[in-house]
Design a protein around this nucleic acid. Structure first.
Lengths: 261, 261
DNA sequence: CCTCAGAAATCATCTGTTCTTTCGGCGGTC
DNA sequence: GACCGCCGAAAGAACAGATGATTTCTGAGG
């Protein structure tokens, strides 16, 4: 029997030792499975016991077990497949970070300025790191995207959807070559489709996609030259420009010295 | 009847229009409630319909509804109180960011280096922002913490628990005066208790808490002088030092120029 | 060896029922 | 009139059983 199993019925009155908050059975499930993973009883990709057994082991009903499992599914820890079983995911950062996307969506409008500022901090570091180590293939890939964007700008300025996609992919390429998966995952999550859509909606009236393209090009050149400082400055300038367009100016509290380096 | 309600039984064969992935009833619940919030049908702090009614409105059973609601509770969007009802939370950033803490815990050991690097990027920006606007009261509060730490270091070097708490509080004070709640929330989440514990466990053998204290003092002085650049450099130095102690050197890929500013 | 129908295993969902907690009203007391 | 405690309604928490849906495995037949 697994170590975490409690003696039959022992929970009833004790209500979990001295814990101030009220742990629900579902929380028991979540914590139980979490511990099983942390203790190495469950490894990534491994399959969990069937609902009935696991429910018995954790001393909860199937309903409660399912609530907990479902929560872990949404958190990206577990993955249930009907007719097959429940498995631990690969536990990759991007997966675990995904639920944060919901936060971004919900907070969305209200904290958009702050959200975007954080994105800027992270992307600036990302492009700096990428400048060190981005391989030629990735540079070529990025260049191809920018060329396509240039073409669209000249011939079909209405293809906004594609322009947005290119923008996202360009930033994604950079993030994916930082050598830091956590950083990449956070940027990815922070820059969800929703946010981008909102951003571009405010920008499109501006006709700012031409300017954005030029800024992307400048970033690309710094990356190509493996110039971290240049890339950083270019990225900061780029994102700051976007923020200013959206926020009408007051990007951050300190009025000056934003470009103090 | 709410706009999102589907006609009775119409789902059975259509299986959600053209959606490639298989939406479960629980996802219907999550998305339904999410939309209710985004559309303004549900405002922060507001109470949801009772389980039975909401289940009927979303055309799912109570079990499925509960799974979805539970997921949103864990995501920090909803808050259920037995005997009372289910409410929308304040939707504050820190609450919505909390589930990310689970990611930090689970990923933990493996990505610790990358996790800490991201933390450094954010804290460096945070201390820069805080230097502009931190009020005298907060400075005094921080100083009190540091004084207490100094006292402990001189008289009771074994009080490691308290030292850790002081460290956390010191950084928290800084984060909370950035004027950017998203940034503060992310730092808070990224620097969960678990991470700190791990960090300090490796540091304590080093006897590095004296050095850490000196670095904190240096940061504090820059904050007091409202010197953003100084604070930034001091914070970077501080966290980089911690990382080096933990990682035995190779903090990041680029071998040099980490201090290129 | 390959194919495919059927069985088995497993998750998905629904329904009904029984606690446990919370809140509000009601009466009583000071 | 204000405060206090009791009690019942309301709501979520948890359980049990049954049924459906989907995937995988198995084995007979070709």
């Amino acid at each position: 029997m697994p170590a975490f199993a409690r003696p039959e019925g022992a929970w009833q009155r004790s209500k979990r030792c001295g814990d101030t908050s009220h742990m629900s059975r579902t929380d028991d499930v979540v914590n139980g499975i979490k511990h099983m993973i942390l203790n190495g009883e469950l490894r990534p990709g491994e399959r969990l016991p069937v609902e009935k057994d696991l429910a018995e082991a954790l001393d909860v009903s199937r309903g409660s077990l399912r609530e907990g499992v479902r929560a872990l599914v949404i958190l990206g820890v577990l993955d249930t497949r009907q007719g097959d079983g429940t498995y631990v995911t690969g536990l990759d950062v991007s997966r675990l970070l995904a639920p944060m996307g919901l936060m971004v969506e919900i907070q969305g409008e209200g904290q958009a300025r702050h959200l975007h500022a954080v994105r800027r901090y992270l992307e600036v570091e990302a492009v700096r790191l990428a400048a060190y180590r981005i391989p030629d293939e990735a540079l070529a890939e990025a260049k191809a995207l920018l060329d396509e964007a240039a073409l669209i700008l000249d011939t079909a300025p209405d293809e906004h959807e594609r322009i947005i996609e290119i923008d996202i992919d360009f930033h994604r390429i950079i993030a994916s070559h930082t050598g830091n998966p956590v950083l990449a995952g956070m940027i990815e999550t922070l820059t969800g489709h929703t946010v981008r859509e909102r951003l571009w909606r405010s920008l499109r009236e501006d006709g700012a996609d031409r300017r954005t393209h030029e800024e992307h090009l400048a970033i690309w050149r710094s990356l190509r030259d493996h110039d971290p400082d240049g890339a950083r400055v270019r990225m900061a300038n780029h994102l700051l420009g976007v923020e200013e367009s959206v926020n009408d100016g007051d990007t951050e509290t300190p009025p000056s010295s934003e470009s103090s380096e």
